[in-house]
Write a protein that binds this DNA or RNA. Sequence first.
DNA 1: AGAGTGATGGGCT
DNA 2: GCCCATCACTCTT
Length: 181
Amino acid sequence: MRRVRRADLARDADVVGPFLLNKLLVAGECVGRIVEVEAYMAFDPASHAFRGKTNRNAVMFGPAGHLYVYFTYGMHHCVNVVTGKAGDGQAVLLRAVEPLAGIDVMVARRGRSRNVADGPGKLCQAFAIDLSANGVDACRPGPIGLFDDGVAPPVLPKSSVRIGISVGVDTPWRWTVAGST
DNA sequence: AGAGTGATGGGCT
DNA sequence: GCCCATCACTCTT
């Protein structure tokens, strides 16, 4: 099982998005297979980076492979993988994983045994990802990593429009593993 | 269909 | 510097 290479993430988010399907998110004892993602491109009105660099989104303008974590709705965290070239302001939002290991820990953190990591906020709660993970390099040894266990992404991943946004609603930059949701 | 929750940032003063 | 609508969500009704 090898770590995802930074070069693979240093492409545009609409390429990295489907590429990340079936990769593994690892944080401590918790492992999950990525089954739903969304791309937030450069010059994308739905992207946090659209209005330029701020304190919150600064990581999005850094090198690919680092994690951009933000806090929203007063109670939830969401985690993205930075993509493209440094300065682009692109990322892929991790929206859902299928828990593979550390499930008991995830269930305890979530306080329920169903729907443990099938949403961007749920995933972060299950994996204990919060603002302390903002800027973490997932391509180097550290608290959170992305790994490839040899399971290829779907040849034709299911794409659809993104969720929970009010602009950029027409671009099909959400991808899911068939049968996961 | 709506409440809960608080940081963010854009717009104004 | 302050105000406040907005928000890449979740859970319950």
